[in-house]
């Protein structure tokens, strides 16, 4: 079968099946949440920008911009694609504080707030987090291989690692 590579940009979510690859480039304070069902070999990746849609009552916002609404939507989409919720395992990457500021000002906590919201949302949905690479002050690119569920994380200084 032909392997397709799908880019998951900011505030986007994609669901695909083996042997495709889903990837997000240059995650900073954003968080990439990769969920995989190894039995159905269906996976989803979301590129979360902000923690919660509840903070925004006005204006038009896509649900996939936020951790809570986006992850829930992605799990639904994966179930629609044949995955089973009880088989799903999650990996989360990102949530860095990019600029070195001397104290934790508001603009420097968005990464950790994103991570906290992702963890909480996954807990509510009953999906176990089996690996994570979060925090720090480095940008990351991630590649999610739907044949194996392996997630490779690339940083500019430390090269590539697999979680």
């Amino acid at each position: 079968m032909k392997q397709n590579r799908h880019s998951v940009d900011i505030a986007m979510m994609k669901v695909a099946r083996a042997p495709d690859i889903l990837y997000s480039l240059g995650l900073g304070s954003c968080v990439g949440v990769a969920i995989y069902d190894p039995v159905a070999r269906v996976g989803g990746l979301i590129h979360v920008l902000l923690p919660s849609f509840k903070e925004f009552t006005q204006g038009v916002h896509s649900r996939t911009k936020f951790a809570d609404s986006g992850i829930a939507d992605m799990v639904e989409a994966m179930i629609g694609a044949g995955a089973k919720k009880y088989n799903m395992k999650a990996k989360i990457v990102g949530g860095a504080a990019m600029f070195a500021t001397e104290n934790n000002q508001v603009h420097n906590t968005i990464g950790s707030r994103n991570v906290a919201s992702c963890v909480e949302t996954l807990k509510k949905l009953g999906i176990e987090i089996i690996a994570q690479d979060v925090g720090g002050n480095k940008g990351r690119s991630i590649f999610f291989d739907l044949s194996t569920g392996v997630l490779s994380v690339r940083t500019i200084e430390k090269g590539e690692k697999v979680i």
Binding site: G26, G28, G59, F99, N108, I110
Partner: peptide, 23 residues
């Protein structure tokens, strides 16, 4: 000024998150 050397996507994410509140 705060300095950062990294991938442009990552560098911009703080600003994008801020601006993303208004879309």
């Amino acid at each position: 000024p705060y300095l950062c050397i990294d991938m442009v996507g990552a560098v911009m994410s703080v600003a994008v998150a801020e601006a993303g509140k208004t879309g």
